[in-house]
């Protein structure tokens, strides 16, 4: 019944709906049972109606039965839902990343090839898509009812969400965490297209790649002044940095993942690379989250030349 009212447009949706329907069946039965018993007793044992009223005192066995049976059922539901949940939390290896920046009150989308859109997200059918999301101000939440997925989008921290669209069409996208007066207008749509259509659409956008834009920004914001291999400033070479272990000045070692790169730009002083002075200025508030994503894409794209790994003095 539920399938008819809301489209099931992702690979995940049917599985969720099965669970939902099962719950509807179970809880519906319990609810009807409770009401039925209540009505039956009300009629049978109403004052003035002759009925057998002998006995019927507390019995331990009965109590235990209706303690343990619901508990067992609950465990069943729990197990079922956790299976689905684990699936939702582990994006497949072949998923393509798409970056989402939320701000009051719009969704900005960046595809890996640099294509940008606002309040609309185009995705190819059948391809797992992994959203990497961050907010520029308050907490928002990315919600696509037709896909049965939702994830809060936090300031200062990346969160992820993945899905595979299975049905072509345009599906509503809502912000579902209250974020101020514009909260209800923070709506958009997800457009799922056949892969060929998607390729055509992407091609029509003809934008420089995300990393290419990042390269442009890298110069514009003056990063290159310090980080270019030829510069006179003592700053780390960023080639091959992504994914490499970075020794920090406090003696610990972290892996240079998205979060680390992000924090290196907005909060450079939180983790200072070993061997360098903390002279890098903070770009907090000066670079929007979208541009940061482009910069990160650029840093990631910096290949190691001559097989030499990311070197720290």
């Amino acid at each position: 019944m539920s399938a008819s009212s809301l489209p099931q447009a992702s690979s995940y949706a049917p599985a969720v709906d099965h669970l939902f329907d099962a719950m509807l069946l179970l809880c519906g039965a319990v609810a009807i049972g409770v009401f039925a018993v209540m009505f039956a007793f009300c009629i049978r044992y109403r004052r003035g109606h002759a009925a057998d009223r002998e006995g019927g005192n507390t019995r331990l066995g009965v109590e235990l039965a209706w303690t343990l049976v619901p508990f067992a059922l609950f465990l069943g539901i729990f197990g079922w839902s956790i299976g689905l949940w684990a699936k939702l939390r582990t994006p497949p290896a072949d998923s393509v990343p798409v970056y989402i920046v939320a701000k009051q009150w719009m969704w900005r989308v960046q595809h890996p090839d640099g294509t940008r859109e606002i309040d609309t997200l185009h995705v190819p059918l059948g391809q797992p898509v992994r959203l990497v999301m961050i907010s520029q101000d308050v907490v928002h939440s990315f919600y696509v009812p037709a896909f049965r997925v939702k994830q809060d989008v936090l300031p200062g921290r990346y969160t992820e969400l993945w899905f595979t669209a299975t049905r072509a069409g345009r599906f509503p996208l809502f912000c579902s965490e209250y974020c101020g007066v514009g909260h209800p207008s923070m709506r958009g749509s997800v457009v799922a297209m056949a892969p060929a259509d998607y390729a055509r659409w992407l091609h029509a956008q003809s934008s420089p790649g995300l990393a290419a834009r990042g390269a442009e920004l890298f110069r514009r914001f003056g990063c290159s002044g310090c980080h270019d291999p030829g510069s006179g400033v003592h700053a780390p070479d960023l080639r091959g940095l992504y994914g490499a272990p970075v020794p920090l000045s406090d003696g610990s070692v972290v892996r240079a993942d998205d979060r680390y790169l992000h924090d290196s730009i907005v909060l450079p002083r939180s983790q200072v690379a070993a061997g360098y002075a903390p002279i890098m200025p903070s770009y907090q508030g000066r670079i929007g989250e979208e541009d940061i994503l482009a910069l990160i894409a650029y840093v990631k794209s910096l290949e190691v030349e001559g097989g030499q790994g990311h070197a720290h003095p």
């Binding site: 669970l19 729990f78 079922w80 839902s81 939702l88 009812p145 939702k150």
Partner: peptide
């Protein structure tokens, strides 16, 4: 309380 349903 069933996480998978709560997500939606």
């Amino acid at each position: 309380a069933a996480v998978a349903l709560d997500v939606s």
